[in-house]
């Protein structure tokens, strides 16, 4: 027990033994799967048409936004290259499905149907369409378990989207609710503020929504405000989850900047001329 608690030498044993449990987990999740399948089979024609229509219009809207996003991304990269800070903005994703099994009722964990075979590793962030869900803790061979951000032993570095105030968000163990324990009473945070990942700590990619502040209790007798936030991700409902694939962030960043510097010194300033002309162009448009 101590060996497992203090070190990682038993991780291999755990992931190997988990292959024995995989068939059982699959059987256990069958009733839920069958229920979902029956639900899909017996939806009426009209509901399907309505849903299809709704998805079409949503798709159109998203595509339109994506066009704007592409141009914004290009602009962002251009501006960042001006500032000589290159950074990857697009992350690689992998889709996995949750297996409907219950674990410890006093922890917030889920099981997904992808494992080391698909390149899953411990500490990998998972998210759904609405925000960060958590991270992988035990990657097995064919399935892995993940801890949700609401687990009482989980903490995630975030920042307030409105003003960039950095803090740490802790899980409470209650479904969908998180709390901030260490912001002073006079901190600039309001109900309705969106908290996004800050990328500090190097585990979660920067800029994904995590939670929205729903309640703030400022007690003058206490050194810290008690702030409750509601998770953006649909933690208890999502069947499909997205896994952010490895990016080897830090070393690449350093080598890239070095390369950029070399390139710029090689091309004897012609490139900087061009980019500053572009920047001037952009300024005149605005």
């Amino acid at each position: 027990m101590t060996a497992d608690h203090r070190t990682h030498i038993l991780d291999g044993v755990r992931s190997t033994v988990s292959i024995l449990l995989y068939p059982l987990q699959t059987i256990a999740s069958t009733p839920t799967d069958v229920g979902n399948w029956l639900g899909e089979q017996f939806t009426s024609h009209q509901t399907l048409i309505d849903e299809n229509q709704q998805l079409r219009s949503e798709n159109l809207l998203l595509k339109a936004q994506l066009q704007k996003f592409a141009s914004l991304q290009a602009e962002n990269i251009r501006l960042r290259s001006l500032l000589k800070s290159s950074r990857k903005l697009r992350d690689q994703m992998l889709i996995a499905e949750t297996i409907a099994v219950d674990l410890d009722p006093y922890k917030r964990q889920i099981v997904i149907n992808k494992g080391q075979q698909s390149g899953i590793y411990a500490g990998q962030p998972i998210l759904d369409a609405y925000g960060i869900m958590g991270q992988i803790i035990n990657p097995g061979i064919a399935s892995s378990s993940a801890i949700l951000i609401t687990d009482p032993s989980h903490a995630i570095p975030v920042q307030v989207n409105r003003n960039g105030l950095r803090t740490v968000l802790y899980g409470t163990g209650a479904a969908n609710y998180l709390e901030i324990l260490n912001l002073p009473n006079n901190a600039d945070i309001e109900i309705g503020d969106l908290l996004i990942t800050s990328g500090l700590g190097g585990r979660f990619p920067e800029g994904y929504p995590v939670a929205t502040v729903v309640n703030i209790k400022r007690d003058p007798g206490q050194p810290f405000a008690r702030i409750i936030a509601e998770a953006s991700a649909h933690l208890e409902q999502s069947r499909e989850v997205l896994l952010v694939m490895a990016q080897e962030h830090e070393p690449q960043l350093l080598s890239e900047t070095l390369q950029d510097d070399e390139n710029q010194s090689d091309s004897s300033g012609s490139k900087t001329d061009k980019s500053s002309a572009k920047a001037a162009d952009g300024a005149s448009h605005e």
Partner: peptide, 14 residues
């Protein structure tokens, strides 16, 4: 119990 530990993600041996 060992299998249950692996399933629940608790400390191995609990």
């Amino acid at each position: 119990g060992f299998l249950l530990d692996v399933h629940m993600g608790s400390v191995l041996g609990l």
